[in-house]
Design a protein around this nucleic acid. Structure first.
Lengths: 158, 158
DNA sequence: ATGTATGCAAACCATTTGCAATGAC
DNA sequence: GTCATTGCAAATGGTTTGCATACAT
């Protein structure tokens, strides 16, 4: 996939730029983590990242993963999400579609919702004393599965 | 404040209704927690709630507070927020203005942003296989304080 | 050579859990 | 009287921290 490789190259350059600007070191670990994140799809948590990397190319300590994610968040190459549980989830954030998340409050299932125009409205919002860099929209509710499960449970009770 | 007392009465009734419907018990602790939440303003975390209640009317164990908050979330009398740190914050959710949150990624400061019409657009969003009950919009960026602090730091370096 | 970044293990701390005692029904 | 709920204290688990070692500069 040429496109994906292109993106990997671009984000690597962006990260390099960021590290240089901040006077931070360009370590193998940092680039390996970035590369791994941009090789995967969807959301991941720290344990998933740690396990997957251990299984494959590169073993990196948890401490380093946490440290590096902090940098990637700072330069906006990664987004952090907290969907209501204690574990944080992350996703790559370059050249990806604008999307929101719907979260089922019963089973915790998270789905992506494509943007259909809300973005422009939110970004045109004027805020005093605040310069917005990005935003997250979380929609909570009940997914069809859980809705149906509830219904049949209620029917049994009656 | 008559208005506040009214609201307290209404949410108490709503909670009672919810407990009855679910076949759960109407304990003093549960109503004390609800009352305390609706007596306070703004966001709070579990420790704040626990401490404040201990200092005032009613001492309730942490376990019970966690348990009760779960119920209040379920019947939408309380909202839960995770602003990026490990601690969860909560706020009452009845008859309150529609608002979003702006979060400074430098200092963590959270401010409320009044809704100016985004709500209707979001609520008109059609979602397959999902019935939305509520949503949260978080805007991340830099507050003026931190922006200025950064600038003067950069100037010193140059 | 210098000092930042890593890896490890221990510490931290919000949240969850198990269980005996309490109290709503 | 029964069993859900409470309070307590211990356990859990994601995240953070301290420190010796490694390595980017």
């Amino acid at each position: 996939m040429v496109d994906k490789d292109n993106i990997k190259q671009i984000v690597k350059e962006k990260f390099t730029e960021y590290l240089t600007e901040k006077g931070l070191r360009k370590t193998q670990e940092r680039f390996a983590i970035l590369d791994y994140i941009y090789s995967s799809e969807g959301h991941f948590d720290m344990e998933m990242l740690y396990e997957s990397m251990s299984r494959q190319h590169f073993r990196v300590s948890r401490a380093t993963i946490y440290n590096t994610i902090e940098l990637l968040l700072d330069c906006h190459l990664v987004l952090k999400h907290q969907f209501g549980k204690n574990t944080s989830y992350y996703e790559k954030n370059y050249n990806s579609d604008n999307h929101y998340h719907s979260i089922c409050t019963e089973c915790g299932m998270v789905q992506e919702i494509k943007d259909t125009g809300i973005r422009e409205i939110i970004q045109s919002e004027k805020m005093k004393k605040f310069r917005m860099t990005h935003y997250c929209l979380y929609m909570y509710g009940i997914c069809t599965n859980c809705e149906n499960a509830k219904k049949s449970k209620n029917n049994n009770n009656v």
